[in-house]
Nucleic acid binder design. Structure first.
Lengths: 154, 154
DNA sequence: TATTGTTATACTCTATAACTATA
DNA sequence: TATAGTTATAGAGTATAACAATA
């Protein structure tokens, strides 16, 4: 009734993002995970190797300090473990535990269903278009506005 | 280098949203406004009538309590004013002040440029496609996941 | 000295619950 | 009693700055 007009592209984008985040939050709450924690766990789960904190932060597109908070929570929940990198003792390697991998499996199905729900108003072709457009936006995006990338002029 | 793969639609979406929010934050910081405050001010500025708190919350797609915080900040900054609705003294009517309207004008140009930057990797046709897809997503979106709408089954 | 991660802190955004004033 | 808004509080997400350990 009050949402259909006058929004520019960034506005529309953040509006939908808010809705997605709200939905994820509700879906994950019963599992005791926040959307950010679940996202980090997925990244760790799909990685072949244990990830350093900085690498995880890079994939999450947040500063390393913020990754610490996320990993702290996951570690407390027993879903990931930290270990010093033998090759470079400054580095911390993070890996999902067995419980972490089990949680990922439990979440996967639910996640697919939720995504389908969220984008239910789009046809499969439209969803594919959206995916392509988002991928385009993502390409050099981090270079421009990422928190970890060096700032450039402009 | 590390962002190009394995993201589903919600992930891609939130990733870009994060980037947009970061860009807005940086752009608005010199003006002493947060993205949320600027958004509320724009909604108030484009409204013909003064808005009640609940109406503003509705357009912002947040709960009324959250709108209070935003309006508090705008009022402190002298950009909006609150007045009791003469017709119903329970209601509060919010209007931009002259300073608020001036701030909106100052922001408008900058905002257009920022939006162009953010979506620079897309052609005009692609931007239009994206706009249409987002509009579709927005249609019955609030009904499903909004914080103010009554919860339904499913 | 440079790098990696962390401790300490702060701010934005949003939520629920309880309360006040009004209807 | 129901409604509009607020006070009080909390938690998620993210940031900067200073510091320790290691290289």
């Amino acid at each position: 009734m009050d949402s259909g007009s006058e929004h520019d592209l960034p506005d529309l984008f953040l509006r939908t993002a808010r809705r997605i985040r709200r939905s994820m939050h509700a879906r994950l709450a019963p599992l005791g995970l926040t959307p950010g924690q679940a996202r980090a766990l997925r990244i760790l789960g799909r990685s072949e190797q244990p990830l350093r904190m900085a690498a995880l932060a890079g994939q999450l597109d947040i500063v390393p300090r913020s990754a610490t908070t996320v990993v702290d929570a996951l570690e407390s929940a027993g879903l990931v473990s930290r270990a010093a990198d033998p090759a470079n003792r400054r580095s911390t390697l993070v890996t999902p535990t067995a419980a972490g991998r089990a949680a990922l499996e439990r979440m996967a199905e639910d996640r697919r269903r939720a995504a389908a729900d969220l984008f239910a108003t789009l046809s499969p072709e439209q969803r594919e278009s959206l995916r392509e457009l988002l991928a385009l936006l993502d390409v050099d995006a981090a270079d421009q506005c990422g928190p970890n990338e060096p700032r450039r002029a402009g």
